[in-house]
Nucleic acid binder design. Structure first.
Length: 380
RNA sequence: UCCUCAGUAGCUCAAUGGUAGAGCAUUCGGCUGUUAACCGAAGGGUUGUAGGUUCGAGUCCUACCUGAGGAG
């Protein structure tokens, strides 16, 4: 039983960028899409009501297998009706497998062929993840889209290590799919599982990895291991190596990217889905994304500034509050600052994706790219 | 008028007589499948003033200035 149906509405004849509709068990997602990150079953600072507001109209969220595994645990979530009911989110959820944590919490782990042993960052307790166990966890969560366990090596790594790591990721993906297909057959609801293309910063390994994952006949494919310290052109090059090999009629997901100006670049290389902590995390750290570039709200220059963060933004924050007020809230450490800033930054990212989608549908994506490539970096 | 206490970075305060520091603020970085309402760097001082003791004083002594309390 398929969980997803990917309907392509338009393809840019110059770049190959696609606009489509991703039909999930929890609603339709317009692509290309930016997925806000809600690691611990919450987008920090946002209620589901905020995210559902037509102003944001978020269709799909991320949550994290690793973090929810440690707390509160897959079984409690299953008993409480799954992640959707647990967090009161009616729309689609994609769960990351914890593969990223294998790398980002590297001080605490040991990678073996059959999985990874790691220490909880919460209490130091020992746990293991296998391709099978992370599928089980994500089925307990009731994820619409689950991700296979992968290894996400840091940059730079040797070709030798990247190859071994990629081989492991492919083997894990194969094991995950075997287990997933056996388990999913007995379930009432449909779930999708995406494998992840790895291969370090070696185009040859990326191509090989993509080719080997095709046999899995997955409902969508992810490209991982991007923005792990490498220069940006290299990230784009890795996508250029892998994306053309992936099935044209399935969604492609670039994991963990990127800055606002990078989003159209990934789309131009055939990417349909992206997620990133930048809009939410940077919001809380005083970094606001605007149509005129970045704005660091803590700067004293905004102390008496009555203007909105972005005069061209129609978000709740920009409609009602001044830079001076937001700066005040930030300096005072007030919770409302994070709420308003996150709301604005998410709106900015979602607007960018809607703008990209609109341009593709109108056949004007090359012109759109031209404009954003010459955009200013800093707001005044 | 007298007594007591206190004067150190923009602010609040540290510093057994031995290289004047911290937090906040300021300025600037950083953040990319969140261990992050987080992390880092820089600028900023005639230690109230003037003398004295001492090898050496923010620290001890004297006078003065300012402030806060108290007494009358």
């Amino acid at each position: 039983m398929n969980a997803l149906r990917f309907e392509i509405e338009a393809v840019c004849p110059i770049t190959g960028a696609r606009a489509g509709l991703l039909h999930t068990p929890h609603g339709v997602v317009e692509t290309p899409v930016f997925m806000p990150v809600g690691t611990q079953a919450t987008v920090k600072g946002m209620t589901p009501h905020d995210l559902l507001d037509p102003e944001l109209d978020v269709r799909i969220l991320l949550a994290n297998t690793y973090h929810l595994f440690l707390r509160p645990g897959p079984e409690p979530i299953r008993r409480l009706g799954g992640l959707h009911r647990f967090m009161s989110w009616p729309r689609a959820i994609l769960t990351d497998s914890g593969g990223f944590q294998v790398f980002s919490l590297s001080g605490l782990r040991k990678v073996a062929d059959d999985g990874v042993v790691f220490r909880s960052h919460l209490d130091g307790s020992l746990h293991s993840f296998t391709p099978e166990s992370t599928v089980d966890a994500q089925l307990a969560y009731g994820s619409d889209i689950a991700m296979v366990l992968d290894e996400c090596p840091e940059y730079p790594v040797s070709h030798e290590y990247a190859r071994a790591s990629m081989n492991r990721t492919v083997a894990w993906a194969q094991a995950a799919f075997r287990h997933f297909r056996a388990r999913a057959a007995g379930l009432e609801t449909a779930h999708a599982l995406f494998p992840i293309v790895q291969g370090g910063m070696y185009p040859g390994l990326r191509r090989e990895c993509a080719g080997r994952l095709l046999d899995l006949d997955a409902e969508g494919y992810a490209i991982g291991g991007l923005s792990v310290g490498e220069p940006r052109p290299m990230s784009f090059e890795m996508v250029e190596a892998a994306a053309p090999l992936l099935p044209a009629n399935r969604p492609r997901y670039a994991m963990g990217v990127g800055m606002p100006e990078e989003l159209p670049e990934y789309v131009a290389r055939g990417v349909d889905m992206m997620d990133c902590v930048l809009p939410s995390r940077n919001a809380r750290n005083g970094y606001l994304f605007t149509s005129q570039g970045r704005l660091i709200i803590k700067h004293a220059r905004y102390k008496d500034d009555p203007s909105p963060v972005d005069p061209d933004c129609g978000c709740y924050t920009c409609r009602h509050f001044s830079r001076a007020y937001l700066r005040h809230l930030f300096q005072a450490g007030e919770i409302l600052y994070s709420v308003l800033a996150t709301r604005h930054n998410l709106k900015r990212y979602l607007d960018i994706m809607r703008g990209i989608r609109h341009a593709i549908l109108l056949g004007e994506f090359p012109e759109y790219l031209e404009v954003v490539r010459t955009a200013p970096a800093e707001a005044v």
